[in-house]
Write a protein that binds this DNA or RNA. Sequence first.
DNA 1: CTTTTTCCCTGGACGC
DNA 2: TGCGTCCAGGGAAAAA
Length: 276
Amino acid sequence: MPELPEVETVRRALEPVLTGRRLVRVEIADSRLVRPLEPLQVAAELEGERVAAVERRGKYLIVRFESARSLLIHLRMTGSLRHAPAGTLADDPHRRAVVRLDDGSDVAYRDVRRFGTWLVLEPGELAPYLAMRLGPEPLGPLTAARLAARFARRRAPIKAVLLDQRTLAGVGNIYADEALWYAGVHPLRPAAGLDGEEAARVHRSVRRVLRAGIERQGASLRDYVQLDGAGGTMQDEFRAYGREGEPCDRCGAPIEKIRIAGRGTWYCPHCQPSPG
DNA sequence: CTTTTTCCCTGGACGC
DNA sequence: TGCGTCCAGGGAAAAA
């Protein structure tokens, strides 16, 4: 499940591959990828474009073209990208799109569960599209005080608030649980109920786990792989996520699992004291 | 306005 | 072996 560190890892690998390259042929094999537009129409729009830059905002990959158009890619749950010389990637029933570059290589998009999306935006459309969906970048110039101010307006559980992309862009289920474990904050605590010290710990912990995730080139559980097909190693560092019944690395108490906002949530009942 | 729930989608794990 | 059921979850949309 690609979150900010996984998407950033892909972006860093994709940048030297795509920048300056022209898209000479685009095949979109799954109409759901570009719905409600037609695959042939979207492919035709992309063919001939030359890449100016590869950026990331939250969990979105942004391919900027010299034409000032952009392609917005969201991997959602099971999307992944691969890069290889043309024709060398093995047949894959889950391949949803392939882009042929003018250097004779292919970038292929795979997505088992078909939640991912590709969206072509015209000049001027990108900024407002992202602005209405995303809050600040957690690794940008966001201060603890500004994050605390966002928490103060929300009565929902801190876990749900961290997953809300308008509060903070790029945190998903894994890194939310990891950050709250490091912060020592129970995931059900109402966000507005955190004091300044606790909010500062969440701020610091979110940045810590995201940076660690990037250093480890992401967490590979099921489908996420890097551009060359290799996995990341952040899953070896998990303190809470997916560790139900295992001893907490800090105090030894068994990690517990609950559901918040429809998502599995793991935490230490001793280090992260219950709100009730 | 905020918050919660439902839906999309497939494959793997599990019980019988 | 082969079913039926549950689970994984990001974000849009609907419901509360």
